[in-house]
Computed example of a mutant assay.
Amino acid sequence: MRNAPWKVDRLTGSIGAQVSGLDVRQTGPADADVLRDLVREHGVLFLRGQSTDPAALVGLAGVFGDVLPAHPLKPGLPDHPEVLANQTGGVRPQDVRCRDAHNRHGTNWHVDGTFVREVPTYSLLQAARVPPVGGDTLFADLAGAYAVLSAPLRDLADGLSCPHDVRLLYADWLEPGADSLRREKLLEMPVVSQPLVAVDEEAGGRRSLVLNPNCVRVIEGLSDLESHTLLELFMQYTLVPERTVRWRWAEGDIALWDNVRLLHNYVLDHGASSRLIHRAMAGSAPLKPVRSWIPEMSPSLVMPSDR
């Protein structure tokens, strides 16, 4: 771990750290290794009071790798096509009541972009406008959840895959009367198979569950009952309070995180007040399944018979 030139305060015993003394407008390639190390250690970083110019968010994303288009199916800002604007407001009581255990249908626990072959590596959110109360964002550690599974469950999960279908996320685009162009774009998106466990080689082979309730319903080769039971079990391991962190936004705040390692969700409790969050993403790669990963041999990994 390289020494950070900024103040870093852990927020929980598992994930999350606040970084102080960093101005994103002054970050560049020289800061990349330190920031990547901090994300690798803490999962998600929070930066208070940054410039709300979308160009600054794009610049910070660029420190982590190639900045991606805002979304495979949605346009970005006119002057910043890499930035997606997520605006919500006018939350009604029924918007909260009609959700399921994973908060689908309004907001939801999810990983960004697992429905494409090359999954975004880093996600960044910035608060452009915040409500007086509510609208927090939560994060949950998929790597921490995998680490505490029993050995038989880890062995089972290591060999499984799931179809990730974006049409489950945007099912309303397929309803009668929906915009025909959006419907056509959605239907052109293929269903992508992803491993249920992904390996992060840069983190020494750390493994994370790959759970995304907004576009995954089944596990390949398993019945609906088996799929539902296992996916629910893995989610329960992930969403315990000890593997989560919650962030209360102020204008200009930025959250940046390992998109594959963490689930995130936002709390739909801000009533009629408006909330505007900008998102950018950087880097992308196919998820590496356990079965295809061969760790580099070191003295600690050599079996006694090989010495």
Rank of each mutant, 00 (worst) to 15 (best):
L256A: 04
A17H: 05
T121P: 00
L230C: 10
A203G: 08
D66W: 00
K7A: 14
H71W: 10
E202I: 07
E296R: 13
M303F: 09
T137L: 03
L186R: 11
S208W: 07
R92G: 00
L160V: 05
D23L: 04
R275W: 09
V290C: 08
P304M: 08
L268W: 05
L287Y: 02
D179Y: 05
C162V: 15
P152Q: 09
R10K: 13
P131H: 04
G89P: 11
V34Q: 04
R307S: 09
L181Y: 04
L160A: 08
G106A: 08
G65E: 00
T88F: 12
L125K: 03
Q87D: 10
P295E: 13
G76E: 01
A17W: 06
M235Y: 14
V260W: 12
P78F: 11
L301P: 00
L38K: 02
V24I: 15
R279S: 02
V197W: 05
G62T: 02
Q50R: 06
E242V: 09
W257H: 04
P190L: 11
R206P: 00
V197A: 09
V210I: 14
P213I: 10
L239S: 03
L142C: 15
E220F: 01
R104V: 08
V133A: 14
V44Q: 01
G283C: 06
R154S: 08
N108D: 07
R97F: 01
A70C: 05
A285R: 15
G16T: 07
V290L: 07
P120M: 10
N103C: 12
Y170V: 02
P131E: 05
D112Y: 00
G62L: 07
R261T: 06
M1F: 05
C98V: 13
S223K: 02
G59H: 15
T238C: 13
R167H: 07
E201I: 08
D53K: 06
V267N: 13
L263E: 04
G221E: 11
G177P: 06
P304Y: 08
S51E: 04
H80A: 10
H105G: 01
S284E: 14
A101L: 14
L153A: 10
D158S: 07
V191A: 05
V44M: 03
G205Q: 06
L256F: 15
T244Y: 01
D31P: 03
V63E: 11
T107P: 00
G134C: 05
S208I: 06
A203D: 13
E41C: 12
P195V: 05
A151E: 15
T52S: 04
D37T: 10
M297R: 15
L60A: 04
I277Y: 03
P176E: 12
K7W: 01
A85V: 07
S150D: 14
E82D: 05
Q126S: 14
V216N: 05
A32R: 15
W247T: 01
F115P: 00
H228N: 10
R48K: 14
R97V: 02
P299C: 11
N3M: 08
V290R: 13
V199I: 11
S223M: 03
V39L: 15
G59L: 07
E251V: 13
P289C: 09
R36I: 07
K288Y: 00
G144M: 09
V39T: 07
R206F: 00
P176T: 10
P5W: 06
